[in-house]
Design a protein around this nucleic acid. Structure first.
Lengths: 202, 202
DNA sequence: TATTTTAGCTTACAAGTGTACGCTGAAATT
DNA sequence: AATTTCAGCGTACACTTGTAAGCTAAAATA
């Protein structure tokens, strides 16, 4: 096993995934991609595509998984930075903004398919985001005095704001991003403060 | 003027817009629409489309304007309800949820084109949302003791959360929506409380 | 009344799409 | 060494798409 053949297959499969990510951009979404174009960029014949994926849909779901993985890895890294003494809010926001800059096409995929035309896609993205929220909620519960339910609602609100700020940042230059980030940090503080009030009184 | 001819033209123009809105759905976004299908549903020949719009793009931007108008009208109505003695947060949320149910395709358009592949569309939706935020900020400034900058940030955060909750609600049944709405209301309270804290101390 | 304008039509075309079918040669298996 | 498996290819087909060109009849204008 792990024969020459299986290895090559894995390689062109990855080539297809990368070709698809490469073709995403500000003016090109996943649903704009065509099987033929993706195959062309990956260097195979259109009909060979089917040796790897049943569908463009299947490719897309694989891509969502991959983007979710990237995001989770990044946030794990953020938690390490926090542990070695950084502000929770600021470090998380900075990490997320890095994600958007270095993996903008992965972010674009999540962003767009979250409200896209395929229920399966929407569910897949929602799952990734829920992971994200739960990890944050878990962290907040362990680090701050906070009712479990409120910890979840707080995390949810925060993740949504961060995600949306990321979406806006995609169209902005450095200066605008700085302002946006500052606003975002204030907004996260509002939530932290409010949740703390309601989440500890009951 | 206002001749029979101009009147008829206006009528089929509106028919095109309505045909396009009708073809939007959970599994069909604006970029999936084809000029031919829209023309067919509106009852004209494909090439006659060009007598009304230069482009599908031009149609789309018109639709965004129309959706934004609907939204603003609805919120004006909400403010009337608030003035005659209702909770600000709860009334606003209820009004928005009505918008999603009664004009779901208009909402879908705004939701999707906000992160779509056309910069012009994204800008148009962003403008509509900014209107929305500014109206709320204005209201908060006049009704609560609150620094102007904080009023804006508070409104922005609130509108984003409401908008996102709407997006989630599209895929949910009544029971899930009720839970979602309850969570949303708590989250808005967090923000109100937090903003009030930071916005009045300085 | 004679002329101009124009919303809508029909026909036509080139380009791009997904995918069915069957072949080939090399790797894997027996 | 003989056989099976299968990733990738080329050809082919039926569709759909946007839109160019030119016509018609009715409304508007002169």
């Amino acid at each position: 096993m792990s024969g020459v053949r299986a290895q090559q297959k894995q390689k062109t499969r990855q080539a297809l995934i990368e070709a698809a990510f490469n073709q995403l951009s500000a003016e090109h979404s996943f649903s704009n991609l065509s099987l033929r174009e993706v195959a062309r960029e990956a260097g195979i014949a259109p009909t060979s595509f089917y040796r790897h994926f049943k569908d463009m849909n299947e490719l897309g779901l694989t891509m969502v998984d991959e983007a979710g993985l990237t995001l989770r890895q990044l946030m794990r890294q953020a938690r390490r930075r926090i542990a070695s003494g950084g502000s929770v809010i600021i470090t998380s926001v900075e990490t997320f903004m890095e994600f958007i800059e270095t993996s903008s096409n992965q972010f674009r995929l999540l962003l767009r398919e979250r409200s896209g035309t395929s229920k399966a896609f929407r569910a897949a993205v929602a799952r990734e985001i829920k992971h994200f929220i739960l990890e944050l909620a878990h962290y907040l519960e362990s680090e701050t005095p906070c009712n479990q339910n409120h910890a979840y609602m707080q995390s949810e609100a925060m993740v949504i704001l961060v995600f949306n700020a990321g979406a806006e940042a995609l169209d902005q230059d450095a200066e605008q991003r700085a302002e946006l980030t500052e606003r975002l940090i204030w907004q996260l503080r509002y939530i932290a403060r409010g949740a703390n009030h309601y989440g500890t009184q009951s």
